[in-house]
Design a protein around this nucleic acid. Structure first.
Lengths: 379, 379
DNA sequence: GTGAAAGCGCTAACAG
DNA sequence: CTGTTAGCGCTTTCAC
């Protein structure tokens, strides 16, 4: 690991010049540039990122907070985030909160602003107060998948119209002719998945189909969770012809439950999920689901975060624009004020493109109930 | 974001004292300590990790190189790594190489030693030369899952006896009475999965069962890859009663293929894999597989890496032990020599506990072939 | 016990 | 065009 000044010495110039050459700043003579480049190559010089971070007042990393990367959806998302981050020269620190707000807070306290210049939050079950605090301290925060575009949170976010996803799922089932439908709703915690469920219920209602309370179960967002809920539901409501799950994993679990109950999917039972994780197309039968624009959301989230980092009025922006000779105290006040002001203005909301129905093998018209338009009824 | 000296000012002491209080170094008077702690709390001070990294000459992060976190095995592993790293105060930067050695090299060049103090490599398809180079530059590298404990690579590693895993799989199939067996071997690339396959073949051979070339396919480590290979194999060898895959994903794909071919698993066809990813127990039927100690490997890898970082003779160790006033040049030389010497000594190999057979629903005795001990034969 | 001071490697004015 | 000069925020000798 050679340093800038070693390179400078080797090239017979000063470190400032080497720095200029390396970052294409300021004008540098052609021959000097060449000599510097040679020295760099000769010594195998690599910039020290931590030093640069300190000098620039910004780190080349962003933190991605997820509840648990073991859930197959997150890695797909994380991969997309990493790609996007990489494209803008950033590294990604993955922070698993394991659904524990305290773990999340500890992470935020440690890395925000000192090791990462921004924070991406993906269903990490964090305390909003903590998030606001890190924002107030000058580190931008972006929520990666807000479920209700029309009901923005108090934080910048990328929103996906999950309500629409629920509607799409309902429409599909309705068009197929299903009337005996049950639902598995993920994550009891307030709000999460609520939009999906609302969209689904409303679409059913609009078609004159009811979804009684007894036909709904809350379940963890896992295959096992969906499995248990589906068994339960299927035993309580044997005439069920279709299951809607607010997430793919529970939908997959429902298929397993049907399998164990000796019911064939889709002929005896249709199953539909939401998200379209990779596994959805790899299971047997492949899962019909409403695809959510994961990659797009990841890209938007990263670019929104970058924008927030760059944006004047931001803590870092102010600090860089300010004169170095001002006292730190003044800078702090300015910037903190800026950050607070920003937080109280309406934070930005990016909306992704719409969810899309992916018809695959887990749904079909209900057996022996007549065509799609016939309305079957049963007490 | 307040700074150390702000805290110091607030407490009426100097930044050195605050530092001492915070890291429990040096003797600090009880009252001073108390005042400092109050100031810290009052200002909501958080240490600036990048600054600390620069001053200490070591970063609080490690890099985890994986080929693609989208493969469900990696997230499970990454989660375990993160937990272990966290326990030792480290953050994890996840680096997806997407199987591209160049992408891997770029990552290594950028972060190694400057943003992360060590590198964990998990099947990232990296150039060994690159790895040696980063080691020579003073950043410890640990291979996370070396497949052959008795044939160590030139780098420190955590080894898992995958040969044994292959044997275990073979024994299980043999005991069940299978004789018409085919195999799907992952990752054509030299070496990877070779041990698993060898163990499997040798165990078969020892039992007098042959595995002709035509009964083996190479396939990517994906569900689709396994699916295609299995279809192919099953069509070419209709009498097959069991499929062995060197990885769970292709094993799962084989189950799908059997499903599509109208063959019931396990009654018409037994399927066994290796690894025991979470999905294995969540599929229908649940997959019989040979479990590999993932979490243990992750923990060993992290602790081995830490050891390497700490170890005197190491670049960083030397630099910290050396006198600050020596010229940088001398330090460099010393340390580089140390690093090289270390690399040429036998690098450490940690071996995990043995793989374990997990009998689940995808295997059973072959149909109508008599009991497990009867030897069925067919041209 | 506590403070003063140097320095980690790099960047960014500003001066020449 | 290039060098000088201050730091970024923290750690760590070494005096007092």
């Amino acid at each position: 690991m050679s340093t800038l000044s070693e390179v400078a010495a080797h090239a017979g110039v000063t470190s400032a010049t080497v720095s200029n050459v390396l970052r294409n700043r300021g004008r540098v003579g052609e021959q000097t540039r060449k000599r510097v480049l040679e020295a760099v190559a000769a010594l195998g010089y690599r910039p020290h990122l931590a030093a640069r971070a300190l000098a620039e007042g910004r780190a080349p990393t962003i933190a991605l907070m997820v509840s648990s990367i073991a859930n197959p959806f997150y890695p797909e998302f994380a991969l997309a985030v990493e790609r996007a981050a990489r494209a803008s020269g950033h590294f990604v620190i993955v922070c698993n909160t394991n659904q524990d707000p305290l773990a999340g807070r500890k992470y935020l306290e440690q890395i925000a602003g000192t090791l990462s210049e921004g924070v991406l939050v993906m269903n990490a079950n964090l305390d909003f107060a903590d998030l606001h605090q890190t924002e107030a301290r000058g580190t931008p925060v972006v929520l990666c998948m807000w479920e209700r575009p029309h009901d923005p949170p108090g934080l910048p976010c990328v929103a996906v119209d999950f309500r629409r996803a629920g509607e799409l799922a309902a429409q599909h089932l309705l068009e197929l002719g299903h009337r005996h439908i049950v639902a598995i709703v993920g994550s009891k915690r307030a709000g999460i998945h609520a939009a999906r469920y609302e969209g689904f219920v409303d679409a059913l209602r609009a078609a004159g189909v009811k979804l009684p309370r007894t036909c709904v179960r809350h379940a963890p967002d896992t295959i096992e969770g969906g499995y248990a809920a589906a068994r339960d539901l299927l035993e309580a409501h044997p005439h069920t012809t279709a299951i809607f799950a607010t997430n793919d994993l529970p939908a997959l679990g429902s298929i397993n439950a049907a399998f164990d109950l000796g019911r064939d999917v889709p002929t005896d039972l249709s199953v539909i999920g939401i998200t379209d994780i990779q596994l959805a197309q790899q299971s047997r039968p492949p899962l019909t689901t409403v695809a959510v624009p994961t990659v797009e959301a990841a890209e938007l989230a990263v670019s929104l975060l970058r924008e927030l980092v760059e944006r004047p009025g931001d803590l870092r922006g102010a600090a860089r624009n300010g004169t170095r000779n001002e006292t730190r105290h003044d800078l702090r006040n300015d910037s903190r004020g800026g950050a607070q002001k920003r937080a109280s203005e309406a934070p930005r909301v990016c909306v992704t493109s719409e969810p899309r129905l992916m018809v695959r093998g887990s749904t079909c018209a209900p057996r022996s109930k007549g065509g799609p338009t016939k309305k079957a009824r049963r007490g």
